[in-house]
Design a protein around this nucleic acid. Sequence first.
DNA 1: TTGTAAGCGTTATCAA
DNA 2: TTGATAACGCTTACAA
Lengths: 337, 337
Amino acid sequence: MTAPVTIADVARLAGVSTVTVSKTLNNTGRISDETRARVIQAARDLGYVANPAARRLRGARTNLVGMVVPELVSPYFAEVARAAAEAASSAGLDLGVFTTSRDPARERERVAALSGGLADGLILVVPTDDPQHLDVLQRSRTPIVLISHFGTPTDLPNVRADSYHGAHAATTHLLDLGHRRVGFIAGADGSSQAHERLRAYRDATGERGLLDPDLIRPGNFTQRRGFEAARELLDLPDPPTAIFAASDATAFGAMDAVKDRGLRVPQDISVVGFDDIAAASQSHPALTTVRHPIHDMSDSALRLLSGALAGEAVRGTVLDYPSELVVRETTAPPRSS
Amino acid sequence: MTAPVTIADVARLAGVSTVTVSKTLNNTGRISDETRARVIQAARDLGYVANPAARRLRGARTNLVGMVVPELVSPYFAEVARAAAEAASSAGLDLGVFTTSRDPARERERVAALSGGLADGLILVVPTDDPQHLDVLQRSRTPIVLISHFGTPTDLPNVRADSYHGAHAATTHLLDLGHRRVGFIAGADGSSQAHERLRAYRDATGERGLLDPDLIRPGNFTQRRGFEAARELLDLPDPPTAIFAASDATAFGAMDAVKDRGLRVPQDISVVGFDDIAAASQSHPALTTVRHPIHDMSDSALRLLSGALAGEAVRGTVLDYPSELVVRETTAPPRSS
DNA sequence: TTGTAAGCGTTATCAA
DNA sequence: TTGATAACGCTTACAA
């Protein structure tokens, strides 16, 4: 229950003014070596840490960056947060992660609190696509960088991952292997990413005249639904020989269903996921999937934010990263080909 | 690029003093209904949000709670963070999550910054067990609650999950099913939880005279290592009929290895995990595992923190939660019994 | 090289 | 019921 050590305590112990302490600790202004040593020693003895609130209030930086994500349980967001934390750390910044539970009101509050004085800058991952909300963001004096914002255009810097190309490549990969009936287990309704993945699947199969609505099953990104949907697919009179799932979790569920039927992956049924979560490369057989360049994206987001903090003009920047097919062990030519 | 709206702006628009605005918005002091209405309207019109830094500096609350976790990629910590965020939310608090990447220095910095003025309170998950570090924590004027601290005793409130009992129950469960050779794939070296799980396994098998060092394999909590270790186990001259893995990910790796050998779970080999991550209940067969009551723990941690914030004496409180065996579909009697 | 003074936005105290 | 004043801890002119 020690009262917090203030700059005044350090100044007193070192026998100098608070200004000298501030200058010393922030490496600003000229300080004699002797004084500097004394101040640093005093600060260390006292365990002094500058009060970020005071610092921030004064207009100085806090070195705290806030990241607002819908949730952390999905490995995708957890990985984005991790990558951003690493990138922040090497930029000398701290990253605080805040979740909204996909509640727009919560998102607004969080942004308000953070941009209102706690954080130097903000990174919003998949922000709510509400024009009024986005308008508030645009007006913010605190630098804001968006990750994967699709929809209403803004001039905020935006780092996005495209789902379409990877999903198209994945479907084409299966088609090229010789599959003529490729099932699709969709993502959650209302997710723009899920929509893009479905659109790519439709386009790729349509291009070869192989689009069959029966092969498309609704989903919600979960493993459980992947299991059920795959069963539905396998129960079809003319079942698919390959399944493309809109998430890795869904793909694992589908693999469970296939194995549960006594079939083998990939010999009997090929399976492709989307996301490249850690388990994708660790499972056996390792999952063929599509990857967003999460690390590159987080790095870029932080570079943009650092730039903005340093006064660079980053408004209007849009970085579109392609998604990339990662071929592993769950895809092979169909039995009958 | 709007300059932030301050309390002075609101006061000006409402034609009152800043004090009146503050009182109105914080429901402190007597304000006439008429004035109150005008102030609230003005605040709304301007989109005013109090500057947390200023508020905090003045000694008032920020409603921000900081949580420091080793990392977020492991589903366990992600789940702890999620549960805590929910609990915080229903207590009217915001939860900011900070990661340390298991770097003690990073942890110290984060704690210092957070407790030094940004957050009202702190929750540290598996804090570094360094006496000096813990001493600093104990002296902190900002309330701190520990989650799963084992080791050097402190009088900080501590909410812990026991791994021993669940692990013992899991091993006994397999033994009770009739298994006489139960393999164990350990967790990471240096993790106290991993150590407890191994100890429980040793004790439970030892009690029945069924302890065989050959059946214990090193691990690191990963799925990959689970796969390899399970292979080693299956390659033994006298292989186990059941495998207990120190984490769910490891258990999934082990299941992959079993299936890869053309064996079935649980008919040929039973598998038990530890953690009860989301995938455990969603996989097929659903994984028998051991669960820490993460939600109860996070709830308790937040209740303790709220209490401390409200001036209650919570020092010395230690809440020990038992881990619990969750029997699902991956365990069955051995073939030969 | 060092220190004085002012002010960041807010709220608690006290007086009106 | 309302408002003037001071203070929280820090940093940035500006002066010495």
